[in-house]
Design a protein around this nucleic acid. Structure first.
Lengths: 348, 348
DNA sequence: GCTCGCTGAGAGACCGGTTTCTCAAATGAC
DNA sequence: GTCATTTGAGAAACCGGTCTCTCAGCGAGC
């Protein structure tokens, strides 16, 4: 009679032994050695007489023994797990970071715990602290927490790695994107196509990346490279870009630099509905290079942010920290200019 | 002088005590009670004299004590964590399942471990078994493992919940999509618009969902509802749909039922390049309703699969299993017909 | 006033590993 | 052949909790 919840086939010869998951004690007993010896054999620690080792391994195999990760975690003080906290799992940006991190950590035998803060600042802190206790380290992607809170939390969360956010005056490694360089590349591209009147569709005012991009734009414009920079308040979503299409036409600009790809998509769609042809009448650029940027009509010229590299490199830093090394701080990744069909000559 | 790796400000008054993370023993000592009592107070178990409880809580607060999740996991035999194994984190389908699951499990105080098998069948088994040992249960999304292997593994992985995959003759709960119903809705919609010549862009032959969709199509066609069903081998990616656009035009069909949204996007793009107008000349439908389906030009009519509901309900089943209850098996979710701009009257 | 029963809290076993400490046996040196 | 040194393996402490068992102390009942 099976003891477990689920009975197998109802035949008497197949009485599955309850098999209460093999423990190191059972293996030790079966092999006639001490638990310490089993542990040594399983971990290849110290030396064990070949004959004994063979007996232990045979017993382990027979009992289908595998050491309990939980017990090891407690004894060793490490879980071989790290946590990733993201504000919004639906954001393609974070999805790619998640992928890169998961892949890289997995190759080094580490598991990944994910938690979503749903853009709730207060949840972020609780989640991170809670997660840290069951993991060896924390990766915070675009944390919304104020810097002061983050600075206060940093020692508690260490080893800590930041993605898409910096924390000056600390030794917390951060991986972020050089928005300024990306914007400069986009503008240079547009200038080389002959555009002289460019409108920026601004992101959320509170967004640090929006400030970075705008500052870079203003900076380039001030360098006297002979073009006029306009600005329209917009947002971060498709709908924002869509809504502002009419105004874009009104500005008489020949090129649009959108805050991000989503806004660019919205603008593209809005302009299409207004009968404005892209790129013949107006050129459009995005930022991020989310997967779908390749698939719009026309495909989107954008600054390609190496998001999976961000995730991968975040693991690199984390790994260093876990090994007690210090990790380089403040790495910036320069986006790659990805020219596609949404930009063309100003005089086309 | 600070003992930890990172020294704080270099001032003598701020000698942070090493603070070796408070344990239950320290709290017990500080409060002058036994460890058992601290445990009772922290968990609200049994009754403790109010005066003692207050003393314990004060000591806990003073020491910033929080019980170690790892130690609790070992003692209690549960981790309050479940694992999600997906073949491909980049697939929007799995992203939404991840979100739904993460959110629902989080609300019940459970954490989520994610692992990606990268479509490698052999990795899938190893990952799942390994993950199961550090978690209380496993959710497998679209597992690629053959049913026999899955059946063999099921007792090992239990509690186990399947998403987008069924396992007949077992008591493993599964959440899946009623592809047939979705296809029937799409066809009914197209028929009501007057289409009488419909071409199906087939997915990968090995895909079970492709077989389901095709079978439903053939079934509807055989019911004599007065339309002609054509078929083109295609694939699952944007490029597949894009490549087949010319052939679509060649068939003379007035409507396209694509295997999924990605293929529909590809076809949309290909037809656009050929100067064929959608929906005026040809109507197109997708399947899945991935986030970007709303944002194409024109927006895509599709069968909206409630992917986050899949994730949410997967947690529902898992929760039941964790509580020792039995969970309903084989739940099917009927996609919702989402009519957008990519379909129109046949005679337009 | 004494016993019975209940309540509250401590002692200690346990979860399943790792690791230090200890000691017996084997090896090597002289 | 004897003693010092190395090697191999067991005993036991430990990681940080939970929980059963036990018992002291108290109020109720006769």
């Amino acid at each position: 009679m099976a003891v477990g919840a689920r009975a197998g086939r109802r035949s008497d010869d197949a009485v599955e032994p309850p098999r209460p998951t093999a423990t190191i004690s059972r293996v030790a007993e079966a092999a006639g050695v001490s638990r310490a010896t089993v542990s040594r054999v399983m971990n290849g620690r110290s030396t064990v007489a070949p004959e004994l080792a063979a007996r232990v391994l045979a017993a382990a195999r027979a009992l289908e023994y595998a050491p309990s990760p939980v017990a090891r975690s407690l004894a060793l003080g490490r879980t071989a797990t790290i946590a990733l906290i993201v504000p919004d799992l639906a954001n393609p940006m974070f999805q790619d970071v998640l992928r890169g991190l998961s892949l890289a950590a997995g190759l080094d035998g580490h598991r990944l715990l994910v938690a979503e803060s749903n853009e709730q600042v207060e949840d972020e802190e609780v989640l991170a602290v809670e997660a840290r206790r069951r993991c060896d380290g924390i990766v915070l992607a675009s944390p919304r927490l104020p810097s002061d809170d983050l600075r206060r939390l940093a020692p508690l969360l260490a080893p800590l790695v930041l993605v898409n956010r910096e924390l000056p005056d600390t030794d917390v490694p951060s991986l972020s994107v050089d928005h300024g360089a990306g914007v400069r590349d986009l503008v240079s591209h547009l200038l080389s196509l002959g555009h002289r009147r460019i409108v920026y569709l601004a992101g959320p005012p509170a967004s640090a990346s929006n400030r970075d991009r705008l500052a870079a734009l203003v900076n380039v414009a001030d360098q006297g490279r002979g073009f006029e920079l306009l600005q329209l308040p917009c947002g971060a979503m498709f709908e924002d870009g869509h809504a502002v299409a009419g105004e874009v036409v009104g500005t008489g600009a020949t090129a649009v630099v959108a805050y991000n790809d989503m806004v660019a998509f919205g603008a593209l769609s809005g302009l299409h509905e207004l009968g404005v042809r892209v790129p013949e009448q107006i050129s459009i650029t995005g930022f991020d290079d989310i997967p779908f940027a390749r698939f719009t009509t026309p495909p989107l010229t954008t600054a390609s942010v190496p998001k999976n590299v961000l995730g991968r490199e975040a693991w690199g830093r984390m790994k260093a920290l876990l090994q007690g090394e210090s990790a380089e701080q403040r790495i910036h990744f320069r986006p790659r200019l990805q020219v596609r069909g949404s930009t063309g000559r100003a005089d086309a």
